[in-house]
Design a protein around this nucleic acid. Structure first.
Lengths: 212, 212
DNA sequence: TAGATTGTTAATCGATTAACAATC
DNA sequence: TAGATTGTTAATCGATTAACAATC
């Protein structure tokens, strides 16, 4: 459907939150919900809820509201497609990488961790989330064999620069990027989701220091 | 200055990125830079750069450009105030908490980690970033004695719900929140910075599955 | 039918971009 | 002075909110 091409990033970023709330409601046995109640719970407006859902077509019933399970199912299809997981490699098995690996492996997020890479020889016989840690120099042959779709970068900026170009040439389609390397400037055609923890902390600091 | 009250969240979120790029430029010995060159490096527009800086007053020289060190200094003052660090506690010393603790402790982010809390007795004699891990039930007396300003939540949703209200009553002013608990709905007056890693992964998945 | 609530269009708001006068 | 580039105002764009007709 070409419909989805028009969906704006703010809407896309809200989908997981809708999905979470609907999952909670479903677990509580709730069958129906109105846009205004859902909005109130989530701290947004009924208008926005309806506008968001209508990017994808009508998920509700006029006069009635939304069926929790139907709505959750529809958003689930948007987020997870047919349920096929995205095969994913993790670059960098330090503290952050190992914390992040559990999100990649969590079966509710739509990813499958198939390889972990690091340069630290002390890690080579260990594993993370049941996946063995390989030396970084095996990356090329690994990608040639398994064709991972997504790479998660938990390495410093310089290592990210070194490895990102290779990964793109190996056919990686998306990055979950924790490094400070600005991938999207160099590779505008690749889908990148940045999580810059230091930046996030600093902007919190600004708000705390400069409030009222 | 009341000026800063008007600064919008999108601008605030960009400040750390400006600061990083200016730090890099400064390290390379670069003395001056124009809005258009900085914008090009960062993947934004010269208009936005100038508009952003002018929220805070003129940091540049007409006809010349911006002095890298001056600009970096001004943005640093915005982000870090007088340099006094924000005293911070970490709730949850699991994988994520321990990864995140290094960002809190990193001396360039403007925070000082003064306490870590967990419910797991196996952790009680250990420490994180040089800070001992306390049992969660000591939280109240600790806050009464040390008055931390910021709390970092690296616990599951339910634990976050349990602990957030207490922390607010103990005088916490800001949260760096990794849990799925939506603090800002319950405590609208508290400054919250959310990092929802699962949501971030899911929205990346949407974009990968629905592109073109 | 009357009440409720969606789907959808219109109005508003805010953020980004463009333009240009000021000035180094 | 001429060229460059900021500071700042105006125009555009896009996202949010409000309004209301459709309909259950």
């Amino acid at each position: 459907m070409a419909i989805q091409n028009k969906v704006s990033l703010p809407v896309i970023k809200r989908l997981p939150k809708y999905y979470r709330y609907l999952t909670n409601l479903s677990a509580e046995g709730r069958e129906k919900i109105s846009s205004s109640e859902l909005a109130h719970m989530m701290g947004t407006t009924a208008s926005q809820v309806r506008q968001d859902f209508n990017c994808f077509g009508g998920f509700g019933q006029q006069g009635i509201g939304y069926k929790v399970d139907v709505l959750r199912g529809e958003i689930g299809k948007l987020l997870f497609g047919d349920g096929e997981r995205l095969s994913t490699i993790l670059i960098g098995a330090g503290h952050l990488g190992s914390a992040v690996s559990s999100f990649i492996s969590r079966d509710t997020n739509g990813y499958r961790l198939i390889g972990v890479f690091d340069i630290n020889p002390a890690l080579f016989d260990k594993e993370i989330c049941g996946v063995p840690i390989h030396p970084l120099h095996e990356l090329e042959s690994f990608c040639a064999e398994y064709h991972p779709e997504v790479a998660v970068l938990c390495v410093p900026r310089q290592s990210a620069i070194d490895v990102a170009g290779s990964l793109v040439s190996y056919g990686i389609k998306g990055f979950w990027n924790f490094s400070h390397y600005d991938l999207s400037v160099e590779y505008p055609d690749i889908t990148v989701e940045n999580v810059h923890l230091g930046d996030s902390l600093m902007s919190l600091g600004y708000r705390l220091r400069n409030q009222e």
